[in-house]
Amino acid sequence: MPPFERPLKPLHHLILLLLAEEPTYGIRLMERIEERSGGALAPNAGSLYRTLALLVSEGLVEPVGVERPEGAGAPRKNYGVTSEGLSLLREEARRQAELVQAARALDLLGGAS
């Protein structure tokens, strides 16, 4: 298995983070991405499922069960991160922490801390 593209693309990173917080299904994930990114990222169905398929095939995300909504509606497949997905997130967090530290050293964050 080749190493997954580093550093993670924002959309990949956000999906992994959101699914790490709580497994969820496609439409919900779409909404949460928009919320969390403040509208900067608003994947449509085509690109969301392309990314999901890619993360699944790389073993970073996996289906974690099917949820039947009350009343009418198709069953929803929930996705969660795998242990590989988690370790990738950790690695990414460490990388970003180093960046933050470097930024702090230069006092780039100002009084933000």
């Binding site: 299904y25 496609g26 439409i27 779409m30 449509n44 169905a45 085509g46 969301l48 499922y49 999901l52 398929a53 509606g73 198709a74 929803r76 497949k77």
Partner: peptide, 17 residues
């Protein structure tokens, strides 16, 4: 394979959006 796996969900998401 992609169609089979994600097709229905994609339709739902499209419809929602």
């Amino acid at each position: 394979a992609h169609r089979r796996e994600y097709g229905e969900e994609m339709l739902a998401a499209l419809s929602f959006r």
